[in-house]
């Protein structure tokens, strides 16, 4: 699993490496402790792959290095920069998009794993002229400050309401055998995968409550 000697090294002998003084190639044949000291292993060339994504209703055909995440495919290859890269490790939720109807962290999945899948990004939810109701509610309730987490928050918020309507339970659901209720408590728990450094949480919940049709009177948000 952690074998650091690449198969391609079969064409690169230690003797050959030592005599050519190719710094990059030398790193490949050096033992791991030396690599850890900062000598980079050379880029290993791998074949690209054809990947077809249906993004916001449009079929897009790409030719990608297998390492390209869905997030990077959207941002760097399709110029859909609405989806944001925050932590790039699935902790912050800024990269949340909706794939085949389910919200996921686009940073923690490879584009190649989604060949043929339908992806909805913030750009596909609404347009500046015709906002999605959740986008309009975020504007109305000031559900952001810097705005960096907002596309992920909105994709997650739309999915959260859909998941409650679908009957998917959560950690705060009472009786597992009945459908969960559309409450502020349910929405807050389900939004825990979206971090907002500016702390717009209470306004985000206000926006979501309006879209979900929850009367927050007397509810401790």
């Amino acid at each position: 699993m952690n074998d650091r000697t690449p198969e391609t090294a079969s064409t690169v002998t230690r003797r050959g490496v030592l005599t050519t003084s190719a710094v990059g190639a030398a790193a490949a044949a050096l033992p791991a402790p030396v690599l850890a000291a900062g000598k980079p292993e050379p880029a290993r060339s791998v074949p690209t792959m054809p990947v077809t994504l249906k993004v916001n209703g449009r079929t897009r055909e790409l030719e990608l290095d297998p390492r390209v995440t869905l997030l990077d495919a959207l941002r760097e290859h399709l110029s859909l920069t609405g989806t944001k890269k925050g932590c790039d490790h699935g902790q912050c939720g800024a990269c949340t998009v909706i794939v085949n109807g389910r919200r996921i962290n686009s940073c923690l999945t490879l584009a190649a794993m989604h060949d043929g899948d339908a992806v909805t990004t913030i750009e596909g939810l609404g347009t500046p002229d015709k906002l999605h109701p959740m986008q309009a509610a975020f504007v109305k309730h000031d559900g952001y400050q810097c705005g960096y987490c907002t596309p992920g928050q909105i994709c997650s918020a739309v999915s959260t309401i859909a998941e409650i309507k679908e009957g998917i339970p959560s950690h705060v659901s009472g009786d597992l055998t009945v459908k969960p209720q559309m409450t502020v408590t349910e929405m807050r728990e389900r939004m825990s995968g979206n971090i907002c450094r500016c702390g717009a949480y209470s306004n985000i919940i206000d926006a979501m409550s309006e879209v979900a049709g929850i009367d927050q009177g007397g509810v401790d948000a």
Binding site: G93, I104, N105, G167, I168, H171, L176, R190, M191, G193
Partner: peptide, 28 residues
């Protein structure tokens, strides 16, 4: 976690799943 049979007969499993990760991660 959302499967009707699991919720009814193996509730501890639904509860454990729902106590872990985030909604986005559980979807994947």
């Amino acid at each position: 976690a959302a499967d009707a049979r699991v919720r009814k007969d193996y509730g501890v499993l639904s509860r454990a799943l729902l106590a872990g990760a985030s909604g986005q991660l559980r979807n994947k």
